[in-house]
């Protein structure tokens, strides 16, 4: 996570967000170097998804800034926002595939409607990406409802990488998958990110996934980053919150209230 003096690809500084009286993000600071993969871990309800949405511009932070390549994007709107989004790819937790469109149209959606690529060329790129995530080309003609959960995740990944983005975001990429399919998705994420030379920011509470796809790990708790470091240091973090979380212990400093 250290930038070693280089300009970070993505920099999040002092981001705060509250909903009503509930403070969800309480000053998040993170940096990711070009080509590196940062995984943010943390229990459910600690603000991981909100942080991701603030970075993507889907939610406006109350305070703080988000910078891409040294440029402030927090309050960018309109066509400038579209230009920023060109650099982003996103894999949503539930896939978020457009159920009224065929698989190939899902993958090609950004190419056709944002980049103006003609349908034939977009179809070729979509099929190429569908094959790259380990699906048969025929899958392109199916609708998302006809696919299994694992296949939907693959299609969602194909859509996320279709525009060859510079930064890819992964929201709980292995949630709801069996361990083998989860590992397949993790491998695909690693190969896709490395293949594109992209920077990756993921959020998960699946430690097997975090260990596989991360160069660096940060832990979020009560809206703050309480630890960050190399994935190699995860088991020797010296942080009791991290230790409790990665070993999945019910007792420790992280207490969960049951209503």
């Amino acid at each position: 996570m250290s930038t070693n003096g280089k300009q970070p690809k993505l920099k999040i500084s002092g981001v705060k967000k509250h909903f009503g009286k509930k403070i969800v993000l309480d000053g998040i600071d993170l940096e990711i170097e070009q080509g590196k993969s940062l995984v943010v871990i943390g229990a459910s309800g600690t603000g991981k998804s909100v942080m991701l949405k603030c970075v993507l511009g889907l939610l406006k932070p109350d305070e703080g800034s988000v910078m891409v390549d040294g440029e402030e994007i927090t309050h960018v709107r309109g066509s400038e926002r579209d230009n920023v989004m060109e650099k982003f790819g996103m894999l949503f937790q539930g896939g978020a595939l457009f159920d009224s469109m065929r698989v190939w149209e899902n993958v090609a959606f950004g190419l056709i409607h944002a980049k103006g690529v003609d349908r034939q060329k977009a179809w070729e790129i979509a099929i190429e990406k569908i094959v790259a995530v380990g699906l048969k080309p025929e899958v392109g003609n199916l609708y998302p409802a006809e696919l299994s959960g694992g296949m939907q995740k693959r299609v969602s990944l194909a859509r996320a990488i279709a525009k060859n983005p510079e930064i890819i975001f992964f929201d709980e990429p292995t949630t709801g998958l069996d361990p083998i399919m989860a590992d397949v998705i993790n491998d695909l994420i690693v190969s896709s990110v490395k293949g594109l030379g992209a920077t990756a920011l993921s959020i998960t509470h699946d430690m097997a996934s975090a260990r596989k796809i991360a160069d660096y790990v940060a832990m979020i708790h009560q809206g703050k980053i309480i630890w960050h470091g190399s994935v190699k240091d995860l088991d020797n973090s010296g942080n009791e919150y991290v230790d409790q979380f990665i070993h999945g212990r019910a007792t420790g400093p992280i207490t969960r209230r049951v209503a």
């Binding site: 949405k53 579209d82 060109e86 996103m90 949503f92 978020a96 959606f109 980049k115 525009k163």
Partner: peptide, 21 residues
């Protein structure tokens, strides 16, 4: 349904404005 299944958010991340589409 598109809102609650994050399809509208997905559209935004693909640089397509949901108001236009």
């Amino acid at each position: 349904t598109m809102r609650v299944t994050e399809q509208i958010d997905a559209m935004s991340t693909l640089s397509v404005n949901p108001f236009k589409y």
